[in-house]
Design a binder for these strands. Structure first.
Lengths: 341, 341
DNA sequence: CTGTAAATTCTAACCGTTTCAACCGAACGT
DNA sequence: ACGTTCGGTTGAAACGGTTAGAATTTACAG
């Protein structure tokens, strides 16, 4: 494999000169010389070694992505896929590659140095769990970090998220406006702050409307499909089952529909279901989910842009971005059937 | 940020010794010395610089993934997501990171050197289009390559794929066995070899059964949802519409269901639909697609394993792997309704 | 003790770039 | 004719590691 020295030798100039033509600077090169060097580069099929470059430039034009958990299924679930799509969009545009870290974050002491080993120019931390020191750990080590879909505890780390509370308000108010009073909230597991934000806003909205949150609708939170399925079954078998269910995300809503179907509960006639996130399911068949649109790809894209700006020294003070959710009424919500009330 | 030299100085040994403890070799280090060095490393929060290491070791423990097209949507479509899931699984297990290239492949002359710039230890090329010189270009430059879901023209480049022909046979025979004779094949665009393999097997199976492939069911191939939708509409409005449609992949099948629904054609009563790939849709509602299961994640995982074996010098001659597809009969296929025949 | 082999450790070259300080010649102002 | 700039070029010092070869200890037999 040809190196810069080969090019220099073949074209009768110093390596410095070759480097200058390679980078268009920082010193000028006479046109005639440049042409000669370029010709040799082409002839030798030369391309600079990324490692050597990265070593001295301390830049590799690569963004790191760290998901809270690195189970391969987690890296490729709906949430991650959507965020990744946005990240890729920003990366493509800015000419960055994207590296997905596969080693799980353990704690700052053991992991910060590893992830900050200059393999990437900066790191996007997606959906860190509440107790984790991943963000502060990296930030403290001087690694440029942007948090995706979670506020950063660390005040100097930029973050991008949707307005979770607002989304939950939209969903809840929609159900209330339809006339629902028996509304259950199906909670995801308690490692994400967004889950709590959505729950709190749900409860607050209910309270504001003078509707009491029933204890028997309250079940332990989890994103696990099996648990969700079981919880829904339990809810629908209650003496007074809910007439509508609001889930923490669309995957849970899908599982809810499945469980309802298996119980012979018709959606939306007997049960309204509303999700959150609006994953772009290719809906294989009806009904199509009513949900709160969470612009995940845009969130990912904005976060990646923010990170790129930071590593390129254009940190224009932008510290946080909050996207507004939007209620998407489709086919899984209706007024509660009188039969059940 | 602490360097190996800092550690050496602080612990009163040479950098070589520090390196030996870092890598457990190649020379032994006395226990007492090792402890001292490790203590200093911990105290200084030292972690070796990945670039420097990569430069001399010529290994970064990172796999590159190159999708035929790098539209961000392509990188995160169903196909790519499934393959990526498998790749991640293998990578996690072997301790590799995964870099997704964002610059599109142009041609060997312009791109080979760029992608072989030692930023990754090897490259997984996913679904290269038929005319592309991406595989040969990289291979020729000495970059370890494994092709995902396409046979490699280059005989010395390993590849992994599903048996596309067999899958199409399974689907077609299923429809024939149900009694369908008016069967349409909806073709994807002609840049992937697998599309042709599926089509050819479809036609061959039809011929073997003595069923003629009708010209009026033959439409220009495309994966674009709009085109698919239009094609399906055209088919179903034919004087003698097909009683069943076999699509090149599940996304197309989903669009087919949508178009049928919009036309008031009931699936599976009036029209049977069978897809290919079995993407793990969270089926939001019925009917659930009958399809040919293509173990995409396993394909990706196997390919990644093959690549890792190669870069680690354990190339045990394994050159190609073909996975067997499986017919998954669900809810979108039935015998043709007599009404229509 | 001494000689010798084995176990450690050190010195220094190297991996392939970038870039700074220095140099050289030509053009320029005076 | 003579400093001064300035465009163009170069040698060499980083960048932060690995590792071969030499040097130093240590272990052990005689």
């Amino acid at each position: 494999m040809a190196t810069i020295r080969d090019v220099a030798r073949e074209s009768g100039v110093s390596v410095a000169t070759v480097s200058y033509v390679l980078n268009n600077g920082p010193r000028p090169v006479r046109d005639e010389t440049r042409e000669r060097v370029l010709a040799v580069m082409r002839r030798l099929d030369y391309h600079p070694n990324a490692m050597a470059r990265g070593l001295v430039r301390r830049r590799l034009f690569t963004l790191g992505v760290l998901f809270s958990s690195v189970e391969p299924t987690v890296v490729t679930n709906n949430y991650a896929t959507c965020v990744l799509r946005g990240i890729m969009a920003a990366a493509v545009q800015a000419g960055y590659n994207v590296t997905i870290f596969t080693r799980p974050w353990q704690d700052a002491r053991r992991s910060a140095a590893r992830f900050g080993d200059r393999r990437t120019d900066g790191i996007l931390v997606a959906a860190p769990s509440v107790g984790s020191d991943v963000v502060s750990g990296l930030a403290q080590r001087g690694v440029p970090v942007v948090v995706v879909s979670a506020p950063s505890g660390d005040s100097c780390v930029p973050w991008v998220d949707v307005d979770n509370a607002r989304g939950a308000v939209l969903a809840t108010e929609h159900l209330l406006a339809l006339g629902h009073r028996r509304i259950a909230f199906l909670m995801g597991d308690g490692t994400q702050r967004s889950v709590f934000q959505r729950r709190d806003a749900f409860l607050a909205t209910l309270a504001r409307a003078g509707v009491t949150a029933r204890d028997d609708y309250w079940l332990p939170g989890s994103f696990e499909p099996e648990v969700v399925y079981r919880n829904v079954t339990r809810l629908l078998n209650l003496p007074e089952p809910p007439t509508s269910i609001f889930t923490t995300n669309d995957d849970m809503a899908a599982t809810t529909l499945e469980a309802a179907r298996d119980l012979g509960v018709r959606v939306p006639q007997d049960l309204s279901v509303i999700g959150f996130d609006d994953y772009p399911y290719k809906g294989v068949g009806a009904p199509i989910l009513t949900t709160v649109r969470h612009p995940l790809a845009e969130v990912g894209e904005a976060a990646a842009r923010l990170l790129i700006d930071r590593v390129e020294g254009r940190g224009d003070g932008q510290r946080e971005m909050v996207f507004q959710p939007e209620l998407i009424v489709r086919e899984t919500t209706l007024p509660p059937s009188s039969r059940l009330n």
